[in-house]
């Protein structure tokens, strides 16, 4: 059994990469999967905070790469779930401390004993992004329904194509249904018209996400949160379940259209 390496990226900052990584990792582990989350944002470490593991950090990714500890020592076990681990980024170094080959080597070392390796990519299109992309089997692009985030996502998709990676899948995060209904926010269809890749999940805006992040308790643990349920649904889809996409946008028509899109592989019918 060999793990699937999933890189979570976006181009633009602040769209929810770290939140998505923490929540998908948590949800997958809750479903009984063996998961390691890696924070590849060297110098701007925060996956540990969102996962509530900040005070357990001793060694980090750069320590592993530079041989100050072994991989096992840098893996922090989650407080709640038994098969969830996190490897923190170094806070005092920058992206040049890591190379794409280092990331491939680390991912390969982790593969045999896990089911999923989730890599939280830094924003931007430079070295840090390339490091995070290098070992990826699957790329998840996180975007928000706003023009600038979609533009950056499009650029990132183009760069993954040039790397010869498989077509990424899209997470549309922070959707505000009431704004979409009023025509003030891009609809999923508008975003897909530009990006033309498969949509794997739509996550509604949810105040609980911010609260949960600040408390270090991923929202996916909260079954009553809409965003938490959306992340759990994405985790299920990663595992191969064909769940229909939730309808956060409108009461009627769109639900059916989105469902159809998932079945036909993202091509609007």
């Amino acid at each position: 059994m060999s793990a699937t390496v999933v890189t979570v990226t976006s181009g633009k900052g602040g769209v929810g990469k770290t939140t998505a990584t923490a929540n998908l990792g948590t949800a997958l582990a809750e479903f009984g999967q063996r998961v390691v989350c890696i924070d590849a944002d060297i110098g701007l470490r925060n996956l540990d905070v969102v996962m509530g593991l900040e005070n357990r950090v001793v060694y980090d990714l750069v320590d592993v790469i530079e041989g100050r500890c072994n991989l096992r020592q840098a893996m922090i076990k989650d407080k709640r779930l038994k098969d969830l681990y996190m490897i923190p980024a170094a806070q005092t170094r920058d992206k040049t401390a890591v190379s794409p080959d280092d990331m491939i080597r680390i991912a390969d070392e982790l593969r045999p004993k896990h089911d999923w390796i989730l890599i939280d990519s830094p924003a931007g299109i430079e070295r840090g992004f390339r490091n995070a992309l290098a070992p990826a089997d699957l790329i998840l692009i996180v975007t928000n329904p706003e023009v600038s985030a979609v533009r950056d996502a499009d650029r990132i998709i183009g760069m993954t194509e040039a790397e010869g990676k498989e077509e990424p899948k899209l997470i549309l995060n922070r959707v505000r249904p009431e704004m979409v209904r009023r025509g003030e926010m891009l609809r999923a269809e508008d975003v897909l018209e530009i990006l033309a890749i498969d949509l794997i999940g739509v996550v509604p805006e949810d105040e609980g996400v911010l609260k949960a992040s600040n408390h270090g308790i991923p929202i996916a643990l909260n079954g009553r949160s809409k965003a938490g349920r959306a992340f759990r649904a994405i985790a299920s889809r990663l595992m191969g379940d064909e769940l229909p996409l939730e309808d956060f946008e409108a009461e009627g028509g769109l639900f059916n259209r989105l469902t159809r899109m998932v079945k036909t592989g993202g091509q609007p019918a």
Binding site: R155, I157, E161
Partner: peptide, 12 residues
């Protein structure tokens, strides 16, 4: 003339 059989994304 050149032919490009692909979508040109942002940055291309």
């Amino acid at each position: 003339a050149v032919l490009l059989h692909r979508t040109l994304r942002s940055g291309h």
